[in-house]
């Protein structure tokens, strides 16, 4: 049924004209075999999309290796042609706590602007990390870990044990992970369409092992999603199939030396215009995903987790007219 297939394909890419819609509906209304074929075609579209997306995700996970250190993975490469030099020269508008940040509009008119969306030094927390993936925004949860106030610079989260993931492909316990969901929906109406918007996610890790030991992978991931955050928990990490954009940054540490030295890990991700929320994920785990060596955890901490929004006008010509 070539014409039926054509109409279904066209309906996927654009709004059908009234005549095309009538033609499609007439075919489906009058021909039961066309309804069966259309249902099969549309269902196969989903299966194909899932297959291609899974392949992309596997490539993305495979990229999470030492060769991929610091690289930014996104569906929109053009976002990352943005010069880090320009970012470094940007104007720091202000560092605000997360609760205040939502109350202000994204600043406009400067070359590059920063706004702190989220900051947590874990100073006001104690006891164990809540178990499992977060079921709502505003809370940390994850694998066995505990809050600590013993760090010289304030509070932190101590990674204790990696737990295998029932929903992952191999279920192997590769990493002790902590997650938090950040609401980004308010930004949708505030972003200037003429700006590039980049989320910069950073965290400071400590590896307090007094002597060098097995390498431990200290990582920051950020994932952007559309929809409702509460739908994510039961499906994590399968829900990664629907990620709008993501990025990862990491450092590998063997400990020893200056045990108080902060290891700053950061990564950047384009703020997709459809993003309703972000999942930030910090973890300590194996350097290789398929490794079998015991994990040397218990002395690694994360602190000073930050997510900042950087905006920059898209057009250089326009920037001249917007100089502060």
């Amino acid at each position: 049924m070539p014409r039926l297939n054509e109409l279904l394909v066209e309906s996927r890419t654009r709004q059908l004209s009234a005549a095309e819609r009538k033609e499609l509906n007439d075919i489906l209304r009058t021909r039961p075999e066309a309804r069966a074929a259309a249902a099969q075609w549309l269902a196969d579209d989903v299966v194909l999309t899932e297959d291609l997306r899974t392949a992309q995700m596997e490539a993305l996970v495979d990229a999470d290796t030492p060769q991929g250190a610091g690289r930014v993975i996104t569906k929109y490469r053009s976002w990352f042609q943005w010069s880090t030099t320009a970012a470094a020269a940007g104007v720091v508008v202000g560092f605000l706590c997360a609760s205040m940040a939502w109350a202000i509009a994204v600043p406009r008119g400067a070359v590059t602007e920063w706004m702190m969306l989220f900051q947590d030094g874990f100073e006001d927390k104690n006891g164990p990390l809540a178990p499992g993936f977060p079921f709502r925004t505003g809370v940390w949860s994850g694998d066995p870990a505990e809050y600590s106030a013993k760090l010289k610079n304030g509070g932190g989260l101590r990674f204790i044990q990696a737990v295998g993931d029932r929903n992952s492909r191999n279920g192997r316990a590769n990493s002790c992970d902590a997650f938090r969901i950040l609401d980004l929906s308010h930004l949708k109406t505030q972003l200037d369409p003429d700006t590039e918007s980049i989320l910069e996610f950073s965290a400071e890790f400590l590896d307090t092992r007094p002597k060098p030991g097995r390498p431990v992978h200290l990582a920051c991931h950020i994932y952007l999603f559309e929809g409702k955050p509460e739908t994510l928990q039961p499906l994590w990490p399968v829900a990664l199939r629907d990620v709008l954009g993501s990025s990862v940054g990491y450092e590998d540490s063997v400990g020893g030396g200056d045990t108080g030295r902060e290891i700053k890990v950061s990564t950047r991700c384009a703020l997709h215009t459809k993003a309703d929320y972000a999942v930030i994920h910090v973890g300590a785990g194996r350097v290789t995903r398929n490794g079998t060596e015991p994990l040397d955890l218990g002395a690694q901490y994360v602190s000073n987790v930050q997510v900042a929004l950087k905006t920059q006008a898209l057009s250089g010509k326009r920037l001249l007219g917007r100089s502060p």
């Binding site: 259309a38 099969q40 549309l42 269902a43 196969d44 989903v46 299966v47 899932e50």
Partner: peptide, 14 residues
């Protein structure tokens, strides 16, 4: 998940 999504999209065509 895939079957449920396929069902929803095939039913609605969108």
């Amino acid at each position: 998940q895939t079957a449920l999504r396929a069902y929803c999209e095939a039913s609605l065509g969108n």
